[in-house]
Design a protein around this nucleic acid. Structure first.
Lengths: 249, 249
DNA sequence: CGTCCCGTTGACATTTATCAATATGGGTGG
DNA sequence: CCACCCATATTGATAAATGTCAACGGGACG
């Protein structure tokens, strides 16, 4: 029975006790399937539950008055969804499936139990929130102050790194399938689909990337990384302050 | 003595027990004064401690290779600084004083104690992190998908709202002193100082705002709010899932 | 076999940046 | 008190980056 996607991801950072694993498994007792394009949570609507993404890729976005869309974050298996529900009555963002997905819905009250009985997991929630905040501010700086090409490059690197992490792959592969359209890349980077296309072509001509069908290969990752001033926020963690696991386990 | 700036702010959202107040007071036992322009934490350097901002206004920013700057967030009294230190070994951002400031430094280990002995405060940390993430994504959407005028308007509204909250003021005043230069507004909104100036002038001509010396007055807040599609993220909180206070208090 | 979504390309428009010059005002040393 | 100086604000002329509109192709899928 699958264990827990979220526990598997956390387990990559800290050694979980069996008691902690049991508590996390409770978050994923139910499951819900979503078709490509389905909305899980809608902007400005009440947030009934939180979710663990088990399979597939999703995104959070907002729609502006003029109909344009800003994608705030892509989500990969093992991540928690709708976390703003821990602060707000209504969702500040829409969460939708990029492809067919499976999510596990759970009630906020389970989070209450977690915080009370498993302080170390509570601390892990704080850590995750800080990581997400940092990735969000990285994107902010990219959109505010870097060129179109740099933004696209940064997004490609981020997608590659997060894709690989969620697959639990060992070493980094230069080749991967982004799984997002050029329009989605544009909505994530604050560009138009047309301009994203031109930037990809330009990067192809400069031998920074190669494309074949939906597949993409990073030909010169060092140069790409510098051009984008990209930092992988899945690295460089320091969890030394986390408390020891709860005693009762 | 002095109590705790952070506790005072938290107290606006949840009724703190005396035990909780005592725990929070430990975060502010030391104090450090900063002059305008002083750096508290530098990008890519080790994060020695966390801080509570007690007096003055600060900002977090990053510097790009080409020398340009992106301001990620403004900080007001009662806020926690350097929270990414809970996840990363090295700071992803620089934190600097916009004017003369007082901060209280404290060790990460105090956060560990807090999480273990005061689950409700641990939950509050998660809530704060979600609020900051949401404000950050609001800015992201503004920079990615709205006009220069809308971004400036949104920033003015945000500064006003947060300034007032930190002063514990009751009703909203239309008139306030932003306390930031046009260049800083530009670096926060992804614009140049020159263009910020033009946008302010234009908003003045349209009778959206009035300026007198450093003071600014929002003449038509409704229109401004719509033009910026601004939402005040200090409102709309739902903390219903927070656990009860620890028993030993 | 049609249709729709996605990618691609060109011509042109618009927004915003860049560069340069001029105020303005407060602070500082003489 | 005065002369100067620095940071900030303001304005105009021009350039660069990116958006908009329009058209076309290919592949997936019903």
């Amino acid at each position: 029975m699958a264990g827990s996607c979220f526990a598997d991801r956390l387990g990559g950072w800290i050694a979980l006790t069996s008691g902690e694993r049991a508590a996390l498994a409770r978050l994923e007792e139910r499951e819900r399937r979503l078709r490509r394009g389905a909305m899980l949570v809608r902007e400005n609507e009440r947030i009934p539950e939180l979710f663990v993404l088990q399979q597939g890729m999703m995104m959070s976005h907002v729609l502006l008055d003029d109909g344009s869309r800003q994608i705030l974050r892509f989500h990969f298996p093992g991540e928690l969804l709708a976390m703003p529900g821990l602060a707000y009555r209504e969702s500040p963002e829409t969460i939708a499936a990029l492809g067919d997905c499976v999510v596990a819905p759970f009630d906020r009250s389970l989070m209450t139990d977690l915080v009370v009985h498993h302080p170390r997991l509570a601390a892990a929630m704080v850590v995750i929130a800080q990581m997400e905040r940092t990735m969000s501010t990285d994107r902010l700086a990219a959109i505010g102050r870097t060129s179109a090409k740099a933004r696209v490059a940064a997004l490609l690197l981020e997608l590659r790194d997060r894709l690989q992490e969620s697959c639990g792959a060992g070493e980094k592969k230069a080749s991967f399938t982004p799984g997002v359209t050029q329009e989605e890349i544009g909505d994530a980077t604050g560009l138009t689909a047309v301009h994203v296309n031109r930037m990809l072509r330009q990067m192809e001509e400069e031998r920074l990337i190669a494309r074949d069908n939906g597949r993409m290969t990073l030909l010169d990752e060092g140069r790409l990384r510098r051009a984008a001033s990209y930092v992988n926020r899945l690295d460089g963690l320091d969890l030394g302050w986390l408390p020891p696991p709860a005693q009762r386990d």
